[in-house]
């Protein structure tokens, strides 16, 4: 190998890189070309990374720009007015905002405890050979497109709730104050309550898989020590695993909340699209995303379109804050693990 004479390792490398006949061209030229190629590639990748920032900037700018006419016309009152009348061109966003927040709240109320219990089952109770299949099954739930949840909710889930669950809830809570208002009839089937339940099913896999991942990161020594003291499985989960993974769990919950707030299709099918705030959860309502999906293509007039884009802006701001908190918490967690 030493007898290659003038050929240095660089030549070998260049040949390996597919540049043949190195000996016949000027080495300096080739090296120069490679150096230029490297610089060009570096700048190419860097601009692609910057493009990600530009996309986000573009979203914000275009939403603000598009919603200016509506915000100029209605000012702050857009945020708290309930009226939504395309004919007289009076728009207020409080009904969709209310619907978005209430449906997401119902979803989290159900999905968080259920998701945590599933994660506990997967990390503590489940036999080894079953863990992977069940984990995959739960993640498949996350992969089902939201429109499928929508069509299923409309044709199967809502009629089921209308026939069996809602009449039961109405009679069950009929005598109890506050609850009797929350579950006042009639049972429509579609409405805020149904949308919240479907959202719960949709975000369940997100919360489950993140919680499972952080639960698995708990050092076995901690759990073994607690078991050694005679703790029950529940006590280990409650007093060792949960406190240790608090940050990650909250991050996962916020991530699920971000999904629930922005979810469009599943909700649009079953929410009923009624622009009013009703005391009863069983009544039809609307959410920001459902309003946009239902009305945008039919919106005539610049002010109507602009009001819908302003709704989008509100939704984006809310989800941005929630997702940012989620990511910051999860980043803090990763930094901890890295240490």
């Amino acid at each position: 190998m030493l007898s290659t004479g003038r050929r240095s390792v660089v030549d070998v490398a260049l040949q390996g890189a597919g540049i043949s006949a190195v000996d016949h061209v000027d080495r300096a030229k080739v090296l120069q070309r490679l150096r230029l190629g490297d610089v060009a590639f570096r700048h190419l990748t860097r601009s692609a990374a910057l493009a990600v920032l530009i996309i986000l900037g573009g979203i914000i700018v275009s939403l603000v720009w598009g919603s200016l006419p509506a915000l100029r016309t209605f000012g702050v009152s857009f945020l708290y007015e309930e009226v939504w009348n395309p004919v007289t061109e009076k728009f207020g966003a409080i009904a969709p905002i209310y619907g978005t927040i209430v449906t997401s709240f119902i979803a989290m109320l159900i999905a968080v405890p259920v998701g945590l219990f599933i994660a506990m089952f997967l990390t503590e109770l489940c036999p080894m050979w079953l863990r992977r299949p069940i984990g995959i099954a739960i993640e498949l739930l996350a992969g089902i497109p939201s429109i499928i949840y929508g069509i299923w909710g409309l044709f199967v889930f809502a009629p089921f709730l209308q026939q069996y669950v809602q009449p039961f809830l109405i009679t069950l809570f009929g005598e109890i104050p506050i609850f009797s208002t929350l579950f006042a009839g009639p049972p429509y089937g579609i409405g805020i309550f149904t949308a919240g339940l479907i959202l719960a099913i949709m975000v369940l896999p997100f919360i489950t898989s993140i919680s499972r991942d952080v639960f698995e990161a708990v050092p076995p020594v901690l759990k073994e020590a607690a078991y050694g003291l005679g703790c029950t499985t529940w006590e280990v989960a409650r007093y060792i695993v949960l406190p240790y993974t608090r940050v990650g769990v909250i991050g996962g919950v916020m991530l699920g909340l971000g999904r629930a707030l922005g979810e469009t299709m599943a909700v649009t099918f079953v929410i009923g699209n009624a622009h009013r705030i009703s005391g009863s959860l069983l009544a039809p309502g609307t959410t920001i995303s459902a309003t946009i999906a239902n009305e945008f293509t039919e919106a005539v007039g610049d002010l109507y379109t602009s009001a819908l884009i302003a709704l989008g802006l509100i939704l984006f701001v809310i989800t941005f804050i929630v997702l940012a908190i989620a990511r910051l918490l999860l980043m803090r967690l990763n930094a901890q693990v890295g240490r």
Binding site: V52, L261, I292, F316, F320, L323
Partner: peptide
């Protein structure tokens, strides 16, 4: 990027 990953698609 992580925020874009879960940003509402309707937006």
């Amino acid at each position: 990027n992580d925020i874009l990953l879960s940003a509402p698609s309707i937006v």
